[in-house]
């Protein structure tokens, strides 16, 4: 499988060096065009008025919250099953990014809810399941860093990530399974999007901006984690006067 090829951190770093500037450029480009359409070129909604503009950051943030968790759980599974060192680091590096997107989805949703629903928060299935997702991210990060041995931390956190993955379909289908104040899906649904193209364009552009941002920051974080692992290995080599023990090598995960 292709991901085995990138189990070597140095090979992965070469790939990351190539991709990183493209991801940075795409982030800038999509953000500028997305913000132009979201704040200037798109019309207000006939019911919600100008508050619909919150949708252009709220919905992509919510998509990214679920995407990041899925990516984190998959990377954690690969790390757990195949002992893939870079997958472990990818899972660790995704967690704070996903937590930020989840926080933004909750925060912007609250700001949208107040003028539209008349309340900042309701304990409905969609909002509650997204709040649980946020706590899962926090739990993952706390657990991954709770052990002196990074490999043990990664293993424990990977199990939490996999167990918590059951929450992702619950979030997606919560609006169909339960009676919620939150509206049902209007973009990703069978039969195509039920949204006008003048609003779909800024939504897609902002979603692409968030996706490119994720790739860009993820690569920066993985690079840092790989180098932190090398430092750990070098320090252990200095202490022991020989090659570092297996668990201390960069390929075994770092704090």
């Amino acid at each position: 499988m292709i991901f085995h090829k990138y189990a070597n951190p140095n090979r992965f770093l070469k790939l990351a060096t190539t991709i990183q500037p493209w991801a940075a450029g795409a982030t800038g480009l999509f953000f500028v065009t997305g913000l132009y359409f979201a704040l200037l070129a798109s019309p207000g909604d006939y019911q919600q008025g100008e508050t619909v503009r919150i949708m252009y950051v709220h919905v992509p943030a919510a998509w990214m919250a679920m995407f990041c968790y899925t990516a984190m759980a998959m990377a954690a599974a690969v790390g757990l099953i195949w002992k893939h060192p870079v997958a472990d680091l990818a899972a660790r590096s995704t967690a704070p990014i996903g937590a930020c997107f989840t926080f933004l989805a909750l925060f912007t949703g609250s700001l949208w809810g107040k003028p539209m629903w008349g309340t900042w928060w309701v304990w409905d299935a969609r909002l509650t399941s997204v709040l649980i997702l946020f706590f899962l991210y926090l739990g993952y990060m706390a657990l991954a860093n709770a052990f002196d041995d990074p490999a043990r931390g990664s293993k424990a956190a990977a199990i939490l990530a996999l167990v918590g993955a059951v929450n992702v379909p619950v979030i997606k289908f919560s609006v169909d399974w339960w009676n919620t104040l939150h509206q049902p899906a209007s973009v990703v649904k069978i039969g195509g999007p039920a949204i006008h193209s003048s609003m779909l364009v800024p939504l897609i552009l902002m979603a692409l901006a968030f996706k490119a941002y994720y790739i860009w920051v993820l690569l920066i974080r993985i690079r840092g984690e790989i180098n932190a692992g090398k430092i750990r290995a070098l320090r252990l080599r200095q202490v022991h006067g020989g090659p570092p023990p297996i668990a201390a090598r960069p390929s075994q995960g770092v704090n």
Binding site: V57, P96, L104, L111
Partner: peptide, 25 residues
Amino acid sequence: GGHGGFIWASYGAVLVILFGLWLIS
């Protein structure tokens, strides 16, 4: 349309948090 506080706070939070995370990373 009278909802500027909600809208600008949303976009401001996105820009601040995403820029902050990028800077920290």
